[in-house]
Amino acid sequence: MRWIAGLFLIAHGLVHLAIWLPRPDEKAPFDVGRSPFAGEVRRLAVALAIAAAAVLGLAGLGLLVAAPWWIPVTVAGAGISAALLVLTFNPWWLIGLGINAAIIVLAVQQSG
């Protein structure tokens, strides 16, 4: 089960790169570089996506090798991801926020 969870964290991080790194298509239903709160935030969104991917990838590797630091790194990665989703909020991101909340809850449960 550990390897499935570790690979899930890595994949979750990579999804951020797949969504935020490419230039948005004009036919896309929304612009991932635009914030309903702050307007154009593409550079910040890309930076957060890269950070989320790196931290979640590290968390996944830490979980795979049973490193003692995987829990706080996982919580940090899910927090960065959640911040990115809130910044570029769209109703489609509600599932992502739920995934991040579940990751945080499950990681914290493992610590106690």
Rank of each mutant, 00 (worst) to 15 (best):
R2P: 01
A5I: 03
G6E: 00
F8Y: 04
L9D: 01
H12W: 11
H12N: 09
V15G: 03
H16P: 01
H16D: 05
H16V: 03
W20G: 00
L21Q: 11
P22R: 07
R23K: 15
P24F: 03
P24H: 05
D25F: 02
D25Y: 03
E26N: 13
K27Y: 15
F30K: 03
F30E: 01
D31G: 01
V32G: 05
G33L: 11
G33R: 08
S35I: 06
P36R: 02
F37Q: 04
F37E: 06
G39V: 07
E40L: 12
E40M: 13
R42S: 10
R42Y: 10
R43Q: 13
R43A: 15
L44R: 06
A45D: 06
V46G: 05
V46W: 05
A47H: 09
A47L: 14
L48S: 08
A49W: 01
A54L: 11
L58R: 00
L58F: 05
A59Y: 01
G60N: 07
L63H: 13
L64Y: 08
L64N: 07
A66K: 14
A66N: 14
A66H: 14
I71Y: 04
P72E: 11
P72A: 13
T74Y: 03
V75T: 04
A76D: 07
A78F: 05
G79K: 02
G79Q: 04
G79R: 02
L85Y: 06
L85Q: 06
N90Y: 10
P91S: 09
L94K: 12
L97F: 01
G98M: 07
I99G: 01
I99W: 03
N100L: 06
A102R: 06
I104P: 03
I104M: 08
V105N: 04
L106N: 07
L106Q: 10
A107V: 04
Q109H: 14
Q109D: 14
S111T: 11
